[in-house]
């Protein structure tokens, strides 16, 4: 499998290039920030009638990943739905596909700031956070040291410069003690890991970014990364 390994508090995770963590022993797949129905949320707020296919596109990538790995347990790390009204806007076919994916496995929704509770019509357990072993999965990373924490919320991206060009990609950010996962949602934007917001999470210099590439991830040490404008 095209993956890199990441060990946090003794637990070994594979970083898969689609932008998720895979725990082989638990057969557990972790994704963050799906932001279902972000497009229709924009439309509702008058911010542009964006193509309403983002949920379908996100589900499509998720379905492919699930088909490949066949997880026994799926954890979505919060902001899975862009807002509470997402359930009233989601297309019936999309909702049906989601239910299909949920069937036959544990499906845990961790609550996010966008989706503190379940939107209407959505099945599965809604948790504040979820722990196993020395690992805790939550939406928003806590400020200060938090060994064993795996979170989302910040939508990390990393940028490098090579031969006068820059490449900016979604990434997993980790210093070996904790990790922040990239947003999985199709319309989700990204925040550069060199931004101040990450200062509180990692001791500077110790972080690596696993940038998502075509069919593989690329590990870049912090000193190789550059900030956004």
């Amino acid at each position: 499998m095209s993956a890199a390994e990441l060990t946090i508090q003794g637990e070994i995770f594979a970083i898969v290039h689609e932008g998720a963590l895979w725990h082989e022993r638990e057969r557990m797949l972790i994704v963050a920030d799906l932001h279902f129905e972000k497009g229709s949320a924009f439309a509702e707020r008058g911010r542009g009638l964006l193509p309403p296919y983002d949920t379908r596109a996100t589900l499509g990538r998720l379905a492919a990943l699930i088909a490949r790995l066949e997880p026994a347990r799926m954890v979505a790390l919060g902001d899975s739905f862009h807002d509470r009204r997402a359930g009233s806007r989601i297309d019936g076919a999309d909702l049906a596909q989601l239910r299909d994916l949920q069937r036959g496995r544990d499906w845990l929704w961790v609550a996010g700031n966008h989706d503190p509770d379940a939107p209407e019509g959505v099945e599965g357990d809604w948790l504040a956070e979820y722990g196993f072993g020395n690992i805790v999965l939550r939406h928003e990373p806590s400020a200060g040291a938090a060994p064993g924490e795996i979170a989302g919320h910040l939508h990390p991206v990393a940028k490098i410069r090579m031969r006068g060009e820059s490449v900016r990609r979604r990434c997993v950010a980790s210093d070996g003690l904790r990790a922040v996962l990239p947003a999985f949602g199709t319309y989700a934007g990204g925040l550069n890991v060199m931004d101040r917001a990450f200062d509180m999470l990692f001791s500077r210099g110790a972080m690596n970014a696993w940038m998502l590439g075509a069919g593989r991830v690329h590990r870049m040490p912090e000193n190789r990364l550059i900030a956004d404008l």
């Binding site: 972000k38 193509p51 596109a57 934007g189 931004d195």
Partner: peptide, 18 residues
């Protein structure tokens, strides 16, 4: 700004679906 989506994402989705 960093959290706003880029038009490239919209382009990719539209191209695939319509």
């Amino acid at each position: 700004r960093q959290m706003t989506m880029s038009s490239d994402l919209i382009y990719d989705v539209l191209r695939r679906h319509e």
